[in-house]
Design a protein around this nucleic acid. Structure first.
Lengths: 387, 387
DNA sequence: TACTTCACTGCAAACCTTTGCAGGATCACC
DNA sequence: GGTGATCCTGCAAAGGTTTGCAGTGAAGTA
């Protein structure tokens, strides 16, 4: 209703000055009306607010950020938005941020380390901090970038920086033990991206667990952490003669099952498959996927909390300090490890030892084993465990 | 290597002034070195660049935006990042933007119209324009917001605003004709969100096509456009006695198939199901989903192009003009309609007429029909058709 | 030599907001 | 009536950058 809401197409930018003029006060009073209302007379306040509403005034967040050093934005950099692993993390981060009056900007790097670096630079001055999820760049580069903007790293351990980790080592161990318990003695590990911390952790833990269980572990990879990455190695899996596979993530596991199916190899009758992540999709495929559930939502929430905490500790561009902390004392660098849980569904079954003769196995019926019914194990609780 | 790269934890913000001091020139020369290099002496330029590199200087984009009125950012607001329909669109938009030296910030609204509005405001001064994908708010609110920041709308027709539309009407028609051709005479339409433009278009087109084909169309909905939204209506579908269903999107279709399966109703033997979107997942389910493929990537690209074109037309905050265009002449408001394609896979089969007696149908074997083999029809070309 | 042209650089205003400081008015209290 | 406190508001600097304008010196031209 009125002046500025005329139907001109182009946006006429209305500033604090226009509001000041319209309501007959100084611009500083208008500013305070928005950023410190208790400091201004209630009468004046309503008048200013009315004028602002009338003119369609919105504080310019860029200008505000310039002087306060606070944008109230968080950057969220992820490797691949098409990977269903990330959306729950993103949503949890967003909701947590919203509670604290922050907004989240998501950016996708297409698994490209160069894009990662560039995006951190681009975001640096437009956000108060960046969440780096499953980064593909080097630790040293991450450390270097952390001097430009506060960083919280997810799914990667960087000394000196706050990290949110998921205990995929424990998950891989549980998966291998599950497979060994089913009678599998030759197991393959489908590796993910070479630069992935998760990948290394899984490999280490799986190797230890296999050795302890007396099973032989074959390493296949690195591979693209996608469905096609999984289906591409189906032939290799078949030739390798293993009876069970632990895949880097659910997407690869699903792709592998598809690929094996195309080769006439049946899951879980001939080969058992375990994934990691417990994405929504893993409950929709046939067979339903046995997988290591990772607490993605909890990770998103925790990461935001850590960033905002670190952020409020050093307000206003951190002018003063710096010299005092020269000798590596740095800021708080808590690292949080979240627990994972093995969810047993239908893609794993008895190994060669425990199995009857081959031809029979193929016609066992729709529900070949199911130790405790599909989807019994609960999703990860995501309890935080400081380390 | 040097001064600023000391190992203090806190980021000491280095500005254009520091670089100027270090290289012995005025700040304006430093500025030009970055924003208009051809205006500065090559020797000076290398010196300045060396100093900048040395100090770790990065232009402050917020400050730059404040004065130029250009942020080189694009906002992308979507209803639900967990819906696999969106990632291809996001990725295409990002890649297109990157080519034009823009960055994309994605924000998720959780299908909440209030969050949508709030996000537009929050983004307004931090981006040069916003892509509004499948908005849930009212047309009038969209028009109002478009005065605050340039907008391009995807999957919604708003007069006076640039829009990128997908011809779901044509898609729904093709789907109904396909089903009628298979002998189905009682078909249900699983509706999506009430406020969705796509939903209305589909309903209209499906109704017309059904009437033309002599089939009876039952409307079920509105429903949440998710997998659970689909599985929730399985019982209702069974009771309704229809032999075929066209779902609002693939997620619902897949959920419905799951739900029907749980009730012992087999797809496509007893009920045929068609989805919309052709998300990657639709090729992974059993049965593989017959669906209307929408050109999501092309939509993302096109939307960015339209935004940037509109953007470059009116540089620098559009100070001058405005009065001249008062009478609804506005800026260019091209609307683009992208084509869709029906992809026939395994979730649709012959209707009751064409079928043998009921009891037999249940044991027909794995591949009941397959008119032309799975996945024959090609994905949508996405040719733009101005309208 | 005088004049023009050119390439380069410095100056200062501008963008929009926040905020420390100080001034003015009002009020209570002694 | 004087003192102090309290509440509200204005002033002006600051934040980091861009950019029109003007100035400098050198090279080119007549």
């Amino acid at each position: 209703m009125t002046a500025a809401t005329s139907d001109e197409g182009a946006a006429v930018p209305v500033t604090i000055r226009d509001v000041a003029r319209a309501s007959g006060v100084h611009i500083s009073t208008v500013s305070r009306t928005f950023s410190a209302p208790h400091l201004v007379n209630p009468e004046t306040r309503v008048r200013v607010l009315a004028c602002a509403e009338d003119l369609g005034y919105r504080p310019n967040r860029a200008a505000r950020a310039l002087i306060t050093g606070r944008t109230h934005n968080i950057g969220l950099i992820i490797a691949d938005i098409a990977n269903p692993f990330f959306p729950p993390l993103i949503k949890a981060a967003e909701s947590q941020a919203r509670h604290r009056d922050y907004h989240v900007f998501v950016a996708d790097t297409n698994e490209d380390p160069t894009a990662e670096e560039e995006l951190v630079h681009a975001l640096a001055k437009q956000v108060d901090g960046v969440l780096l999820c499953s980064p593909r760049m080097s630790n040293s580069l991450i450390e270097q970038l952390s001097r430009e903007v506060p960083l919280v790293v997810v799914n990667r351990q960087v000394t000196g920086l706050p990290c949110v980790l998921m205990d995929v080592g424990q998950g891989a161990r549980a998966a291998i033990e599950h497979l060994v318990g089913l009678g599998h003695t030759r197991i393959a590990l489908l590796g993910g991206p070479r630069s992935s911390w998760t990948n290394r952790e899984m490999r280490r833990a799986a190797a230890t667990a296999a050795r302890a269980g007396g099973a032989e572990l074959t390493l296949l990879g690195p591979n693209a952490p996608t469905e096609t990455g999984g289906s591409a190695v189906a032939e290799q899996v078949r030739r390798s003669g293993v009876s069970a596979v632990l895949a880097y993530n659910d997407l690869m596991a699903i792709g592998l099952i598809e690929g094996l199916d195309a080769l006439g190899v049946r899951v879980p009758q001939e080969v058992s498959v375990v994934g990691v992540d417990d994405i929504a999709l893993s409950r929709l495929t046939r067979p339903k996927l046995t997988t290591v559930a990772t607490p993605t939502a909890a990770a998103g929430r925790t990461a935001v909390d850590m960033l905002l905490q670190q952020d409020t500790e050093s307000p206003r561009g951190t002018r003063g300090l710096g010299a005092g902390t020269a000798l590596g004392v740095r800021r708080t660098t808590a690292q949080v490890m979240l627990q994972t849980d093995l969810v047993i569904r239908d893609s794993t079954g008895p190994g060669p030892q425990a199995r009857p003769a081959r031809p029979l196995a193929a016609s066992l019926g729709p529900d070949p084993h199911c130790p405790a019914g599909p989807g019994t194990a609960t999703a990860a609780t995501g309890d935080a465990v400081a380390s």
